[in-house]
Write a protein that binds this DNA or RNA. Structure first.
Length: 265
DNA sequence: ATGCCTTGTACAACAAGA
């Protein structure tokens, strides 16, 4: 099973790019972020035509997440990250797909920092830590996939100097990430490619794509059960080089679910 | 220190992204 995460940066404007990627790479599950669209204009029919069922949670102008599945339909588990009923930003969607729990998340950017947006980022991350702990203890096979807006280490960015004050590199953001790994989760890309500079985002400024000046901020974290199923992980960088591309590239894992305990081979 | 570029909203110019 191939599970991917892709920050599309506007699903209406990005639909041709999204459809081309789905057709070429055929992910079984695709977690999308930054739909930037209300629920009513989500391109359900076009995606259905391409062979994908969808769950989505939109919002006007900003945020918005979706889970696409090929073959079986995803069964929605929750549409909000627990812990703050007053949080109205569409950043979390969780579903069961073929016996796996898929959490699609869009962690707040947090800039400028310090300030209220950075406070929101950290409090959102605290809520995620709480919920991740519950998911871990459930012992279900879980993948948490999305745009985490965290550059885990200085190895995950082309040059940390000019980003030192950015919310994505702050020690507080990285400490939350480390605490998550401390719960036991596997950072799939790093597990399989420990020595390789791998990026998932290249901003639109300063010809950063052309110079490969990227950041690794889109991540897939695997629970214990799923980490033993991990066969391959990568980034579909060709998508970033297409005309009219998102500033993120799809990031994915290939899992051999036959290795799950209790499953027929 | 700021803009760089892009999207959405709405139709000018700003908010937000990272």
């Amino acid at each position: 099973m191939k599970i991917a995460t892709f920050n599309v940066n506007g699903i209406k404007s990005r639909l041709p790019n999204l459809l081309e990627w789905l057709q070429r790479e055929q992910p079984d599950v695709a977690c999308l972020q930054e739909l930037k669209a209300l629920d009513g204009v989500f391109p359900q029919a076009e995606l259905r035509e391409a062979g994908y069922h969808a769950l989505w949670k939109g919002q006007r102008s900003w945020n918005g997440v979706a889970i696409l599945t090929r073959g079986g339909e995803a069964v929605e588990i929750r549409r909000e990250l627990p812990g703050d009923p007053g949080d109205e930003q569409s950043r979390y969607l969780e579903a069961a797909v073929d016996g796996i729990v898929v959490a699609c998340l869009y962690l707040p950017n947090g800039n400028p920092q310090p300030g209220p947006k950075f406070d929101y980022k950290l409090s959102w991350f605290e809520r995620l830590l709480q919920h991740a702990q519950a998911l871990w203890r459930s012992r279900h096979p879980v993948v948490m996939a999305g745009d985490w807006n965290v550059v885990p280490t200085d190895f995950d960015i082309y040059n940390p100097r000019s980003w030192r004050k950015d919310a994505l590199l702050q020690p507080e953001s990285r400490a939350c990430w480390e605490r998550l790994l401390g719960q036991g989760w596997t950072d799939a890309i790093r597990k399989l490619h420990p020595q390789e500079a791998i990026y998932t985002f290249w901003d639109y400024f300063r010809q950063h794509w052309e110079k490969n000046s990227g950041l690794r901020i889109d991540h897939l974290l695997l629970s214990d059960e799923l980490s033993s199923c991990l066969q391959a992980a990568g980034v579909d960088t060709w998508v970033r080089g297409q005309p009219h591309a998102s500033d993120h590239a799809p990031t994915w894992v290939q899992l051999d679910l036959g290795r799950l305990a209790g499953r027929p081979r």
